[in-house]
Design a protein around this nucleic acid. Structure first.
Lengths: 238, 238
DNA sequence: TCAAAAGTGTTTTCTATACACCCATGA
DNA sequence: TCATGGGTGTATAGAAAACACTTTTGA
């Protein structure tokens, strides 16, 4: 087989930023790296691109291997390429970011990888350029969540409005007026109110809501405004 | 030197989507590919990632080689990875997209590459998956330009409001009310009115404006609303 | 009975949109 | 002088924001 001549071939790693929300904190799923270099240090879950798969395939494969989850929100974010980012040899890193419901994950945790959730505000040092990757993901999430109903991916099937609001407030580190927030969220028609109440958070109990999948898909691309515009952060690219 | 074992290394191509606006049409700069496969067919300008450069370096190098331009708006867009996208061997394609002022380019065209501007609405068939790349870039530009003053990158130093409006109308294939558009654009404080007029488009002449670089940088991340919200298109990612 | 969280409306301000006429000039 | 494109203001409707009290109930 003919090949392009005189060109250097490199390894392609796919790294997954897996984010969850536990009701009060954003969390990142990390693994303890099992091989050199930087063995035992914390790292994003990743792997090398295989000959017959696309990057999307690889990211899904990696995510599935670690969490057992499929049909997760997963999006290609950016490709990192500093020549010395991996000390062993040149590897370019394609980063995906995933949003998952922590509860779903906990049922099928795969502990072969020594995985652990870390609060975003309290991350350990990470190998290579993984900290930069996480920082970019957070910036991007803040940007995107201000415009699209993406954060719903982090919630269990049933959730309450106070939970939803806490999630937005956590991401933007701000307080949002309850009445205005409720009105905006409900006016999107994405939510369906259930009869049942969640009594774990208060004595009175808060009504559960579920996603109207139909409306969710239809409105996903629409520009929504769940958070006050002064809180809308910088764009994902500089 | 130790390497990771049992892994496949692949070529990394960097392809540049170079967009311009000529006053009435969006144009894409293409080259006639000089080597097999698909020799003589039209293609995005690209090249292989070299051992000591980052992807950003590579994209700038390629852009510079073709257009002679530096300090151009250039952004990494997406990495394409279908295993058979290049028939010769496996190559993953990192796509950058660039916005340039066509006038500036024409002064220093490098014709070693048989480059030519094609109107976006009248593109030739492209090699490999380059058409998909262009389509994604257009979607992304429509999305981003609705929120950030990115289109200014396409304009010469001095331009008129009718030219600016035509650029927005062209991208969204719509008509915008002149009075509302003017008010919104000027309220951003990004523009500075010059005394001079452009007489090429009409007898009365239209005032030239220039960018207030200070304000431009400050407001770039701000969410602007130059175009009516019904025209805001789907997001860049699905 | 009271502490703690949930739920709910109204007023005001601001922003978006719709809409039409006069101006300047070169041919 | 007139045809062509450039420039400008106002009124209306809709959305965002500010703001406080009542309800429920388990401890």
């Amino acid at each position: 087989m003919i090949k392009y001549s005189n060109q250097t071939r490199v390894l392609v790693a796919v790294d997954c930023i897996i984010l969850g929300f536990d009701g009060s904190d954003y969390k990142l799923l990390l693994i303890q790296r099992g091989f050199a270099p930087e063995k035992e240090k914390w790292s994003l879950m990743g792997g090398f691109l295989q000959p017959d798969e696309t990057l999307d395939n690889a990211a899904n494969r990696i995510l599935q291997r670690l969490t057992g989850l499929e049909d997760v929100y997963l999006e290609q974010m950016h490709t990192f390429s500093k020549p010395d980012r991996d000390p062993i040899e040149r590897v370019i890193g394609v980063v995906y970011f995933a949003l998952i419901d922590i509860k779903k994950y906990q049922q099928q945790i795969n502990d072969d990888f020594h995985a652990r959730w870390f609060a975003m505000k309290d991350l350990p040092g990470l190998i290579f350029d993984h900290e930069e990757m996480v920082q970019m993901a957070l910036t991007k999430l803040r940007y995107k969540a201000a415009l699209h109903p993406i954060l719903f991916e982090l919630l269990p099937e049933k959730f309450t409005l106070p939970q939803l609001q806490a999630m937005y407030e956590g991401l933007y580190e701000t307080k949002i007026d309850k009445r205005n927030f409720t009105r905006k969220v409900l006016s999107s028609n994405i939510l369906r109110k259930e009869d049942e109440k969640d009594k774990t958070g208060s004595k009175k109990g808060a009504y559960f809501y579920t996603i109207d999948e139909e409306q969710y898909k239809e409105n996903f691309q629409t520009i929504l405004k769940f958070i006050p515009k002064n809180e809308i952060p910088a764009a994902s690219e500089s």
